[in-house]
Design a protein around this nucleic acid. Sequence first.
DNA 1: AGAAGTATTCAGTTATACTAAGTAGAGAGG
DNA 2: CCTCTCTACTTAGTATAACTGAATACTTCT
Lengths: 110, 110
Amino acid sequence: MENLTEMLKGVLEGCVLEIISRKETYGYEIVKKLNSLGFEDVVEGTVYTILLRLEKKKLVEIQKKPSEMGPPRKFYTLNTAGQNQLQSFWLKWDFIASKMNELKKSYSGQ
Amino acid sequence: MENLTEMLKGVLEGCVLEIISRKETYGYEIVKKLNSLGFEDVVEGTVYTILLRLEKKKLVEIQKKPSEMGPPRKFYTLNTAGQNQLQSFWLKWDFIASKMNELKKSYSGQ
DNA sequence: AGAAGTATTCAGTTATACTAAGTAGAGAGG
DNA sequence: CCTCTCTACTTAGTATAACTGAATACTTCT
């Protein structure tokens, strides 16, 4: 699926929050997870900017740990604010998804 | 539902395309339709910029007609390119929606 | 030494929704 | 007549988020 960029706005950050919420993880792994999920064109630069944004918004806790495979990794976990943000994200998603579904089937023209 | 802005990126234009595809309509009416659909915070400026963009991308045909209620209206219909764009939009939406659903339930961590 | 895989950073670009202000026509009320 | 409200469109500027592309650096294998 090509050129999903615009439709991912506001969605990708939610995906990253969800992935982090499942288990402590780091940027490179998140990229691989998104790719295997189906978002194949999401590259590192994109995810790392999201992670830096989450850090700036104080939604995550960070712990640096050495890796046996390469440079040290920055592991992320959600703090309470992050969990709230994630919940709020899914509420918004469900709202929009239901509205889009309504529109797709046939909106009852006013 | 507050602050849906970012999540509407790439989605709102598709909504407008879908609404136009149902019947010939004009900006002000499209705003009212989006509002009644549930997108209550979408205002005129937003929709008109989308309509100008659709015009620039040559996805619509335009006909100006007088109104009994106020200034003349610009009526929009989709041309073939617009219909293709709409179909492509729904393909993208379905793709993302299914992936999001997958992620929400529980992604099978690699 | 060099290449490939792992891992992160960051300056700059682009696309899109939104803000805010303006223009304008028609009808209603004071 | 003046003002307000509803209808209807335009547009310059802003904010945000994904993406691009280049750089840095550690480890392992050849």
